[in-house]
Design a protein around this nucleic acid. Structure first.
Lengths: 368, 368
DNA sequence: CTGAAAGCGCTAACAA
DNA sequence: TTGTTAGCGCTTTCAG
């Protein structure tokens, strides 16, 4: 009895030709008559043929495609989750012959042009990039795209560049959602304030704007009585918040649009206002849990870093291996973290940290 | 001249053994002396051996894993998104030689035991299942697991069975999050009510309980003044809600824990209470958009159907093809939909419906 | 124009 | 305890 054939062999059997001919038809190579080619393609279509990418990669010897990754290595908070998502997806794709070249930078925007340059020189087929300083990166990104190396930005965009796609939560929307929530949390006519990192950063500015526009729409007579810049400094953030709370005793809400919310929580505690002032924060990390428990933090806007990483890799791999077109933008909806669902977020699960992966990144990165 | 060997062959050559022995050493299989194993592992370490995953996938994939899928086919709302997630992931895996056998049932719990039976008889290697009627399904699921066919439940659980894993948003948590939100939305001492499908359904009961327990914790003196059962009937839901709104003129909030929220929206409209009574709904579909715009719906608890489908497939495929152990449960956090982020949900994008997939399901399903 | 055959690196079944 | 061998599905080269 004839064995159960698969893929190109199956087609060959059905079309009564050899696998070589099938291959020629499938790849539009020459040395095949128009008639047989059509017949083969027809059959392929009928049985819904899809090539086995693992086999292709193996045969072709080389890894099918190589993807370069340039993301900050900062160990806490957002970026380790972003890495997690990238690595998880990378591991799966390696099964299918997609290779990865990791060039982590120490901090956002720190030496990313060099890293990107190296990746391009290195001959990768596509790049995943957090564009720390968009201005410096734009010409390089354009050069890459010019060389037909697609660049997918993740989390932080280089909007002026020719990058093929961007995966992110729009900062403005972040602020809008916070504003809408805040508007529902506090009574009409409330005074609220915003704590930003620094307003010169596009990201924080957009969030602040989104909040400022949306909050009044959902809170009749609500007003924003202040915008604090904490400059990501613990003491400065604490002090400025503390002062504000003294100055505006009837403050009803605070929106912190940087990850650095702990000083604000402490300031609220120091003023005995924890729980009384509605606090909406951004992002999520383990130390925030206690403030959720105490009711200091009412909600946090979660930017899904893991998912962002995952999606960026998928997008690029799908394009490179299957010619899938890029969506110009992939804008995720931020999640809302409250005390009920807090425990479900991976940030709250210490044990789940995947050490092997981290080690691997390091070794691959230094292998250069 | 000796060709340039790679991977396991290279190690074999260096250690003066056969590739079979190397394989045994690398995989900790028995039938190999301690000495040779150590020698081989040492060499592997020295040359920094990493397995070629494509080759492994290709070789191991010879088994040709088949996954059976039994999910309701209901065309609207939740399940088409669930299908979307399943199909998206299935398409990727088919590249790697994983096959799928689709046995959609018309509605949740309708003929699912027969479908599952067929899948088992059919010799699939694993099953993805929405357990519509857990009681009837449990023995079958146990039988499958007994035959070493893992069953992954998705969205609806068969908790008493031996299913390998469950991917879902816990109904209770759904209610809790709604309760917490509602507690923050309405002032202290508020009266709120719940609209359920029917309280005999575990799902709706758990949601109602979760809400009832959590709401008072976040709203001082808040009370639940009523629980309506709409039985998924448009008229009944409308009428009962309409009556309740008349009976309790100072009602501050309504939580609808079934997908069937339109009648409630209409009742609120009829009473001129749209926007005045805070309405929290469940799930998401296109027709809800207008009620978000009008402010009738304050927020909706989104159960991430697409992601659930995706995750269920991944879990099962990872186990079948790479022996990854099952997490006993995968509990997702529900999303919060408000007017700011509404447009980002795929349910709101009509155009994105993937017709080809649907067609394909149908053909595969009827191919039997 | 078409067929046959040799691998890609790994797994697993069977010999020795 | 170890070696040998037959594929996995695809690409590629060399004959016909």
């Amino acid at each position: 009895m004839t064995r159960k054939r698969r893929g190109i062999h199956l087609i060959a059997e059905m079309a009564q030709v050899s696998i070589g001919t099938v291959d020629r038809a499938l790849h539009g190579r020459n040395g095949i008559s128009h008639a047989t080619r059509e017949r083969i393609l027809q059959i392929a279509r009928e049985i819904g043929y899809t090539p086995n990418l693992a086999a292709r990669a193996l045969s072709a010897g080389k890894a099918g495609v190589r993807i370069g990754v340039c993301i900050p290595r900062e160990i806490h908070f957002f970026y380790d989750q972003l890495w997690g998502g990238v690595l998880e997806e990378a591991r799966r794709l390696e099964h299918m012959g997609v290779a990865f070249e990791f060039r982590p930078v120490r901090n956002l925007g720190e030496g990313d042009t060099e890293a990107l340059r190296e990746l391009i020189e290195d001959g990768v087929d596509g790049v995943i990039l957090t564009a720390g300083n968009p201005d410096g990166l734009t010409p390089l990104v354009n050069e890459a795209e010019g060389r037909n190396i697609p660049v997918v930005c993740v989390s932080t965009d280089a909007p002026e560049s020719l990058r093929s796609s961007i995966v992110c939560v729009e900062p403005r929307l972040n602020g809008q959602l916070a504003g809408e929530l805040m508007g529902k949390f506090v009574p009409a006519g409330s005074k609220v304030a915003v704590v930003a990192g620094m307003l010169t950063a596009m990201d924080h500015l957009s969030k602040t704007e989104g909040f400022s526009v949306t909050f009044p729409k959902h809170c009749h007579g609500g007003q924003i009585v202040g915008v604090i810049e904490g400059h990501e400094d613990e003491d400065e953030s604490f002090q400025k918040t503390f002062d504000l709370l003294g100055r505006v005793p009837d403050l009803a809400g605070l929106y912190v649009n940087t990850v650095n919310c702990l000083p604000v929580c402490r300031a609220l505690g120091a003023r005995q206002l924890a729980g009384r002032v509605k606090l909406i924060t951004t992002d999520l990390f383990a130390e925030m849990a206690t403030y959720f428990a105490k009711g200091t933090i009412t909600a946090s806007i979660y930017q899904q870093p893991h998912r962002q990483g995952q999606l960026a890799v998928r997008l690029l791999a799908d394009n490179l291996t299957a010619n899938q077109p890029f969506p110009p933008t992939v804008h995720l909806s931020p999640g809302v973290v409250m005390s009920s669902n807090l425990h479900l977020f991976r940030e709250m699960r210490r044990s789940e940290t995947k050490l092997p992966d981290v080690v691997r990144v390091a070794s691959l990165a230094t292998k250069v």
